[in-house]
């Protein structure tokens, strides 16, 4: 009896036709995923730099405020944040919240907290002598940072940056839970339509795999090109 079931299962006939026929649904989802990912990067990176500089500031209040924001968004689960921004925030400030806006908002802030720590690590990793040399030729702290420290730090941060961006890309799957039509959401829809969850989710997993692989290959190439002056990188 059991053997029979197992045999039957192992002989399960994979049928990708139904899934591939609705590929346009999945591609639309992929496009929506990429949109949110891209926007979260565009807002998250500068915000992260701001938070990092704030945290390193000599002004105690600013530094503690930024520390708190960073730690809060690093220690709370992104799914909880998303629910909060989607369900709670609109009531609190009485505005209309779309899944798209909530998603971009959540992931911009969430990833900025992580980017902030990468920025901070990168800046701290630069030899103290670089600050001193800049100071000795009369540079202000601000121009030391922008002309001397950041250009070197950013180069070292690329691997950590890439890693975090990939995390972000994977985390965007959560937005399916607030009914934003990303790749994951489209997959759920399709699976309940064609009753072929095995094929649908396998195809989707493969799509994510290649999307992420492409992105990480791109960053490896970028890192390789920037590594010309022969400095180490920070992970």
């Amino acid at each position: 009896m059991v053997v029979e079931i197992v045999r039957e299962r192992l002989l399960y006939e994979w049928d990708f036709v139904a899934t591939l026929a609705d590929m346009d649904l999945l591609l639309l989802g992929l496009w929506n995923t990429i949109q949110v990912f891209f926007l979260a990067l565009v807002f998250g990176v500068p915000l992260g730099l701001g938070l990092a500089l704030g945290r390193m500031s000599r002004i105690l209040v600013l530094s503690q405020l930024c520390s708190f924001i960073i730690e809060f968004f690093r220690t709370t689960p992104p799914l909880v944040q998303l629910f909060w921004f989607f369900f709670a925030l609109p009531i609190l400030i009485s505005v209309q919240m779309t899944p798209f806006v909530a998603s971009v908002l959540t992931f911009s802030i969430q990833s900025s907290a992580f980017f902030a720590e990468i920025f901070r690590g990168g800046i701290n990793s630069i030899d103290k002598g670089q600050w001193e040399a800049a100071k000795a030729i009369g540079m202000t702290r601000k121009s030391s940072l922008t002309r001397i420290i950041l250009p070197q730090a950013v180069k070292r941060m690329i691997p950590a940056f890439a890693e975090r961006s990939i995390e972000l890309l994977k985390t965007t799957t959560l937005i399916s839970t607030v009914s934003y039509a990303d790749l994951m959401f489209q997959a759920n829809e399709l699976a309940s339509k064609n009753f072929r969850p095995l094929e649908v989710y396998t195809v989707v997993a493969i799509m994510y795999f290649f999307l992420i692989l492409t992105f990480s290959q791109l960053t490896i190439r970028l890192e390789y090109r920037l590594a010309k002056t022969g400095e180490g990188t920070l992970r």
């Binding site: 030899d127 002598g129 670089q130 001193e132 040399a133 800049a134 100071k135 000795a136 030729i137 009369g138 540079m139 202000t140 001397i148 250009p151 070197q152 180069k155 002056t229 400095e231």
Partner: peptide, 22 residues
Amino acid sequence: ADLCKLRTRIGMVFQHFNLFPH
């Protein structure tokens, strides 16, 4: 700001060179 101005009037050379590698 005064100290920055002062430092332009005094040159300093360090043990570990501290050239800007980029």
